[in-house]
Design a binder for these strands. Structure first.
Length: 303
DNA sequence: TATCCAAGGTAAGTT
DNA sequence: AACTTACCTTGGATA
């Protein structure tokens, strides 16, 4: 077991682990006290755990546990997790600079103040792709449940500190899943989408990470070749996995925000409205603004 | 207790 | 290209 810690004050703009992991960006972490999304007071200091896939570690899957307490991010792992955490939780983003480069409007300011320190995540691409295929017409807490079941059913088990953790399935593992089994895991009509997309990735027909080499709108178009991936899901993968911080997924909450606060940005079609709200949110870091607004509204912020 | 509704949308079929 | 409609499931609201 290796351990370490990272002082929060060393991170420009601070950090909020709970907000970062429970804001509906990533579905690859488990809170070890069992709770997540569905309760309790904020400001907890619970441990969270994830398993890095072999595509990231290059070797065996690595378990990473982290918690935030006493002004530090504490971690424990079977590898040196520091660089992994910086990457997964975007600890190298300068939040102060990013907020300074998004507009100074009342909704954004309120959302920023509510979850100061929340960062975007950088999830492994295949897990992110599957997670957001599953997200269609689904509550955040249930998306998380689906991903947890997929890992336990099809992922590699990894022993760490007396417990068994499960990596998110590799494409070839998930490609072996039958639609029927996926429906039993309560994916509903998303089951064939996940099965077909996993086959596409496993066969080498296309890989989500290949979109990273393209320009933003071409990258979004590229991802829609996967079954179950439309423009909104594509934007989520671009933002939460592939580092396109300008991506603004147009989900129900953001559409509500547009109607209430930025009606002039509603241009009818997805691409045009997306472009308008992206500009309204300052362009290059518009996705940060989107994520704060989404989480703020979803957790009861005034509309 | 029964019924209804909506949830971080997408694919397929019509105009 | 723009506009409908069907689609699994289920927690929470309403009757």
């Amino acid at each position: 077991m290796e351990t370490g810690s990272i002082p929060v004050r060393s991170l420009p703009g601070g950090f909020d682990l709970q907000a970062t992991l429970e804001s509906g960006q990533s579905y690859t972490w488990l809170r070890e006290d069992g709770g997540m999304y569905d309760e309790v007071a904020r400001g907890g200091d619970a441990w969270y755990a994830t398993v890095l896939p072999t595509s990231v570690t290059g070797g065996r899957p690595a378990v990473v546990r982290a918690r935030q307490r006493d002004g530090r991010i504490e971690w424990a792992s079977n590898v040196d997790a520091h660089a992994h955490l910086v990457r997964l939780l975007r600890l190298d983003d300068d939040l102060d600079a990013i907020m300074a480069r998004t507009p100074d409007d009342p909704l954004l300011t309120t959302a920023y103040d509510a979850y100061r320190g929340m960062r975007l995540v950088r999830d492994p691409p295949f897990a992110s792709l599957v997670s957001f295929i599953c997200s269609a017409q689904m509550r955040v807490s249930r998306i998380h449940g689906m991903q947890t079941r997929l890992a336990r059913e099809f992922g590699d088990p990894v022993e760490f500190d007396g417990r068994t953790y499960y990596a998110f399935p590799r494409p070839e593992q998930l490609a072996r899943a039958t639609e029927e089994r996926l429906r039993e895991l309560r994916l509903g009509y998303r089951a064939p989408y996940v099965a077909r997309t996993a086959e596409m990735v496993a066969s080498g027909e296309a890989r989500p990470e290949d979109a990273a080499d393209l320009g933003y709108e071409d990258a979004r178009e590229y991802l829609t070749r996967f079954v179950g991936v439309g423009e909104k899901v594509a934007d989520c993968v671009l933002l939460f996995s592939l580092g396109f911080l300008e991506a603004v997924p147009l989900d129900t909450w953001i559409r509500t925000a547009i109607a209430e606060y930025y009606p002039e940005c509603d241009r009818g079609g997805y691409a045009e409205t997306s472009r308008a709200i992206r500009e309204r949110f300052g362009g290059e870091y518009a996705g940060y603004a989107q994520t704060y607004v989404f989480f703020y509204l979803r957790t009861g912020g005034a509309v």
